[in-house]
Write a protein that binds this DNA or RNA. Structure first.
Length: 282
DNA sequence: GTTCTAGAAC
DNA sequence: GTTCTAGAAC
């Protein structure tokens, strides 16, 4: 186990944002290494499935304007799972769905996805990992706690251990990736997420995905809108809460800039073409 | 979060 | 003319 964690540590070192405090990182890993894994990790074989097996390539068929609105609403309702469906997890794990907001609303989608066994690539007593439904890179997972925590704002010092465990699980997931040797990964949170329920993004830095379509997508992962997991934990330990700087939402409107060489590109297609030079297909 | 599309940009 | 984005709607 220690060997495994050490391997994880070495792998992370290569990917860490240089702006993070090294002293803190050392303390963090000392703590992680002391920690026993709560459960045996059951990484299912489906983990190795094609990460591009997603929905973003498929277009919704166009309809005539007159019937468009109504049929769209119908399609939206179709996505809501039936109440009679057999739950995939014990009641103790369904706390996430206890909310005053309708589970049918798009912002509540993660609560549904995380309960779906077909989406789960890992689970233990405290967290579940799913593939992002619309991955923005070759590899893109979400680590979610079973405990219902709406957003970073709701976090307090008591959540530190949970967030550390989420990071630890994220590192394990990365280590299982067949391309861990050639791709860099980042683990972090969106400062102002669209989807309810705290979720840790685990994303490879190729950003090679048809689901990455606009400036908001790009800037949400390549500017300070994306907060490194270690920084969130540190903020929580230091201040007891997570604060987001004023003007963070404006970061999404910044010009498109390559995260590798900092070159500015005029459009998303131009950026994607440019990225091919940094991340050629195998 | 996504989809769709009007109209800006080329 | 085509490409691309931004914003509304969901």
């Amino acid at each position: 186990m220690i060997k495994c964690l050490f391997a994880g540590l070495l792998a992370r070192r290569a990917t860490i944002n240089p702006s993070t405090c090294p002293t803190y990182r050392q303390l963090f890993w000392a703590e992680v290494q002391k920690r026993q894994l709560k459960t045996k990790n059951v990484l299912e074989s489906k983990f190795k499935e094609d990460p591009t097996g997603n929905q973003c390539g498929t277009k919704r068929p166009r309809e005539s304007p007159s019937e468009n609105r109504e049929s769209q609403r119908e399609a939206q309702n179709m996505k809501v799972p039936k109440q009679t469906e057999k739950p995939s997890v014990p009641d103790s794990h369904r706390e996430a769905t206890k909310t005053t907001e309708s589970v049918g609303h798009w912002s509540q989608g993660l609560k549904t996805s995380m309960q779906d066994p077909k989406m789960q690539v890992y689970k233990d007593d405290t967290v579940v990992v799913i593939k992002d439904k619309y991955p923005k890179a070759r590899y893109h997972w979400l680590v979610l706690p079973w405990q219902s925590i709406p957003s970073l704002k709701a976090l307090c010092k008591e959540h530190c251990d949970l967030l550390k465990h989420m990071q630890q699980v994220a590192d394990q997931i990365v280590q299982q990736c067949p391309d861990v040797g050639s791709l860099r990964f980042r683990t972090g949170y969106h400062a102002i997420p669209s989807m309810s329920h705290v979720h840790l993004h685990v994303i490879s830095q190729d950003f090679d995905s048809p689901c990455l379509k606009n400036k908001k997508h790009w800037n949400s992962f390549t500017t300070d809108y994306f907060i490194d997991s270690y920084d969130v934990i540190q903020m929580l330990e230091t201040n007891g809460r997570v604060t987001v700087k004023e003007g963070t939402s404006e970061l999404l409107k910044l010009p498109l800039r390559c995260h590798v060489c900092r070159k500015e590109l005029p459009t998303i297609p131009a950026l994607k073409e440019h990225l091919k030079s940094h991340f050629p297909k195998k």
